[in-house]
Simulated scan of single mutants.
Amino acid sequence: MDLLQGKSGIPKKILLRVNKITKENVDQYVQTKQNTLDEPKKLKKHIVLGFVQVGKESSWRAANSSSIKKAAQDFDIDLKFKNANQSIDNQIEAIRNFIKERVDVIAFSPVVQTGYEEVLKEAKRAGIPVILTDRELDFNDDSLWLTSIGSDFQEEGRRAARWLLGFTKGVKKDINIVELQGTQGSSPAVYRKKGFEELLKNNTNYHIIASQSADFTKEAGKRVMKEMLERYGDKIQVVYSHNDDMALGAIEAIEEAGKRPGKDILIISVDATKEAFNALFSGKLNLTVECNPLLGPELMKVILDYQEGKEIPVKIVTKEGIFSQDNAKREFINRAY
């Protein structure tokens, strides 16, 4: 119990895998809670959740928003949903409004890793627990949030690099990589980059020759890739994109430049959306690392557990895989996003 409550002296961020989301345990919990909701009232009051979404930057985000909205209905939680449109100022304003409204719980996916200290202190003083979803924060006082739910972004970067090293094993010549980063300062951009570089650093023939933010959008991915092609041309052998939408934009830019994505230039991305699977099937994408957006049921589970006085893991990590042209067809039928 001391470990979970952070009383052991071990930083919360070391305890990364306290619990994992799997389809089986979420389905079981949904059924259990539905049975509970059908019984006479056991909770003291109806729960009001204030949720602030990052924006609408990608198909992944749309699936994430839909999951949260549906899960709130399924768990009979009153959801107040706000969209920050990629603005930290909008998020902070929405959180402050939720504090004034005295919601029971606040949850949000931070635009970037810093800048929220003061508003979270306000929530703490008001006695309102805060839950992070998808993305994380990076400042000293991690008592300002109850838990975080989402992916291990650094491991996603490692998985991308691990596949590249295996796929190009035996190649002696230099391999030049261009990187399409997500929103600058966001936790997925920071840690997907860090994990990727971590595995490549001891392999001297792999070079990231350009790295630039394309803000997780298809349009910016296409624009930035076009600029990189104009500058580096045939020197580019690999594109590493921090999400599928940017990769899909890059694919369009590569085709317009007269090159074959997936063949002349290897394309690696993160998210594993249906659009990425279609690109795998057509041979234009080589790999997508899964990042599960369906966090709604686990978020509602944590809220109900907290209201019932149960211990809450400090970090809940989603169960995810990787998909290449070799195994994509087996998984596509199961895709919910």
Rank of each mutant, 00 (worst) to 15 (best):
Q307A: 14
E227M: 04
G170I: 08
A214M: 04
L199H: 10
T133E: 12
L37E: 07
S269I: 02
R17H: 15
A279F: 02
M228P: 02
E57P: 09
K274F: 00
G296H: 02
F81I: 04
D142E: 14
A94W: 02
F51G: 05
K20M: 12
K45Q: 15
P313C: 11
G6V: 01
K193A: 08
M246G: 05
A253P: 06
P129V: 11
V239F: 01
K100I: 09
S67D: 05
I95F: 03
Q181V: 05
K56L: 15
V317Y: 04
L285H: 02
G249S: 13
I95H: 03
V302T: 00
K82S: 12
V130Q: 10
Y240W: 03
I128N: 06
E275W: 00
R335W: 13
I236H: 04
F196E: 10
K23R: 15
E57S: 11
L299Y: 00
A214G: 06
F81W: 08
H207R: 13
T133K: 03
T273I: 01
H207Q: 13
A62K: 13
S67W: 04
L199Y: 12
V54C: 13
L229G: 03
T114F: 07
Y191Q: 07
G157C: 04
V270K: 01
M246Y: 00
E198K: 09
D234P: 02
I236D: 07
Q5Y: 11
D215Q: 12
I254Y: 04
E155L: 14
K69E: 15
D152L: 07
Q31R: 12
